[in-house]
Design a binder for these strands. Structure first.
Lengths: 225, 225
DNA sequence: GTAATAGTGTCTTTCAGACACTATCCT
DNA sequence: AGGATAGTGTCTGAAAGACACTATTAC
């Protein structure tokens, strides 16, 4: 058994909510309404509620819902950060999650959320900067060999749009032919019959959506792209 | 602030300690000496000690040292498991770590540890089976494109030995020429000058050791193997 | 010499990128 | 018609696997 006089460890979750606007990765930050760091921009986060949450994943989903007013289909555990100094209230464990959403999902929560370019982050409280950096590393790494970035695309989308999303996340241009070969191999998309993106002064593009089976699971490729 | 009458969440660490014996991956289990599940084989684990641990990683290292009597150079955070039912004592958060050690490191702790083939695990308490499965997935995945398995090899070792380790972890044969090309590219090994593995009725093999720079960091390959 | 494994040279196949071409829209 | 982007066929170069060959030991 534990020492009765040991101070309890604080159990929290933090969510790195990423989206893409104007071709740049953006992190969603909330202004804190209470101490510590009241008034500062920080990651959406909060205590785990043992009474209502079935696990930390549920805590993260609840934080997103209650504090940002939205639901993210893609919500993956990132890593856990811990120690006596990361939170001034005491020894804490923060299970960090990463959420990816298309820009339109954020519209209803627009007034509560501040979107910040991940390449121009302001100073952040706690170890939130480190948490975001870990999320970026993970997202960029996973994007090299999986269908992860489709979660940043509002459906339906065209292949050129999806390629632009990959290029924004990875930060480098991708060969069009190779990209399309890979997307085809991954077999995660299906063309929306008869749906074409019209309007441009050019040939219209086929619209695609994610196959049901891959809506929550990722499709992985043995090699890159 | 939290509800004062909310029961505290239990904060623990668990370590999946893997090694290789007779060409098979083995997990190190300890017999529990107290409730719950006293007498059962389980992962080495314990409470986070807010008074002495600088973070959960340090808790995991302490658990390994105190309960198994050993130190693992490679100790990586795996994932965090949580919920009200995984531990009968109450709502718990377990930060799981994965350690890889060469077989000789376990010799001094031989009497405390039970090595179990990961393909023939006994029923395990808590959600330890799920934690081990997660560790195996991660180790196998990382082994496809990194130098991770070198941590399972006692130094110095020969390239055929290292290849056998990779094959045991990945569960499939590897092309010898490709393997040596990749090891060369990764540039993580250095030949021990003049050191050859003699004794067999065949040509002796060059002995290698890990370069200092890669002793704690992994070397990654863009493509597989 | 023979058996056995270490280590290498080289051919073949597979895959990713470059390039060019066709397709289809808007103005 | 001309400009713009979507989509595809094909060539080329790089990298992985297959195979065969040499090297060096024990017996």
């Amino acid at each position: 058994m534990k020492d009765a006089d040991a101070p309890a460890i604080l159990c929290t979750v933090d969510v790195v909510l990423l989206t893409l606007q104007q071709g740049r990765l953006q992190a969603a930050l909330l202004r804190r309404d209470r101490a510590p760091f009241a008034g500062a921009l920080a990651l959406p986060g909060g205590y785990i509620h043992a009474q209502e949450d079935v696990d930390a994943h549920a805590s993260a989903a609840r934080v997103l819902r209650d504090k940002a007013g939205l639901q993210s289909p893609y919500l993956e555990q990132l890593a856990t950060f811990s120690g006596p100094v990361r939170d001034p209230r005491g020894w804490s464990v923060a299970v960090a999650y990463c959420a990816l959403v298309p820009p339109d999902v954020l519209l209803p929560a627009q007034d509560r959320i501040s979107l910040v370019d991940v390449n121009a982050l302001p100073p952040l409280p706690f170890d939130h900067r480190q948490i975001i950096d870990t999320a970026l590393q993970r997202v960029r790494s996973k994007s090299q060999y999986s269908s992860l970035p489709v979660h940043l695309c509002a459906e339906p989308f065209t292949l050129p749009q999806l390629q632009a999303v990959y290029e924004a996340v990875l930060g480098e241009p991708i060969n069009k032919v190779s990209f399309r070969r890979k997307v085809d191999e991954l077999a995660m998309l299906e063309a929306v019959p008869g749906a074409l993106q019209m309007g441009g002064a050019h040939r219209p593009a086929q619209l695609y959506r994610v196959r049901g089976a891959y809506r929550h699971a990722l499709s992985l490729s043995a090699r890159g792209l």
